[in-house]
């Protein structure tokens, strides 16, 4: 198991969002975290990355407990994270956005940068542009490339296609599929839409009101009763 989460409780102040979440993401597989808006999917990823503190529970990455580590230490262990909303450093150029990450990562080198740009060739022509001036789709590609230059062994993606123009959604989904099948990267993907999950996922976890209500291999996604848990 690459990532194991057990009994995770997370709260914003007095409002508890996650209740005893268990999750297992095996190496080389794409695990899809599903559920409606506000059920705690993003919170789960943030807690795994240490952006939000966990109130209880353990997070184990490649056999080591990481719950006490700072965010940047988790990144250095091999977790890559692309937050929701195609975030960038808006006043840095595309090249600088990637460079900051490259310089902070132990596994980062020029080759990692080239590989990330090979996956999103459109970025090559934009290297000197300020990230804040890119379109949403381009920013999302930059956000993913940024996470990849650290050479993560597991990638956490929070709704990577949300609010992105359809033409680029296809490119992003293809990139995810390539990372998964060709590079054999373990991926934890937060996704609202069942059809995307059906195309990409090996396994899935469904959250509802901060608890895991379903989990299993991809075949279980065909289950009719799942629709009730996903539709708004």
């Amino acid at each position: 198991m690459t990532l194991v989460v057990e009994g995770l409780d997370v709260a914003y102040g007095r409002a508890q969002v996650l209740f005893g979440v268990d999750l297992q993401a095996p190496g080389g597989e794409l695990t899809c975290v599903m559920g409606r808006n506000g059920v705690g999917k993003s919170t789960l990823l943030k807690a795994i990355m240490g952006v939000l503190p966990a109130r209880a529970g353990t997070i184990t990455f490649e056999g080591a407990e990481i719950g006490h580590l700072k965010t940047h230490e988790r990144v250095r262990l091999g977790l890559g994270y692309v937050p929701q909303g195609h975030e960038t450093f808006p006043q840095l150029t595309v090249a600088e956005n990637l460079q900051v990450t490259l310089e902070a990562a132990p596994g980062g080198d020029r080759a990692a940068l080239d590989e990330a740009l090979d996956l999103f060739p459109a970025l090559r022509g934009l290297l000197k542009r300020r990230a804040g001036f890119l379109s949403g789709g381009q920013q999302q590609q930059l956000a993913m490339a940024r996470a990849l230059v650290t050479r993560p062994r597991m990638l956490l993606l929070d709704e990577p296609t949300e609010g992105i123009q359809p033409s680029i959604i296809v490119e992003i989904e293809e990139a995810i599929a390539r990372l998964h099948s060709e590079a054999g990267l373990a991926i934890l993907l937060v996704e609202q839409y069942l059809d995307t999950a059906l195309r990409l996922a090996d396994r899935f976890v469904v959250l509802d009101a901060g608890e895991v209500v379903r989990a299993g291999p991809r075949a279980g996604l065909q289950d009719e009763s799942l629709h009730a848990l996903l539709s708004v």
């Binding site: 952006v51 994270y81 940024r146």
Partner: peptide
Amino acid sequence: RAVMQNRQLAAVSGV
């Protein structure tokens, strides 16, 4: 500059 512009993103970028 990265931390100034987006502290959380800097942290998840390994800074």
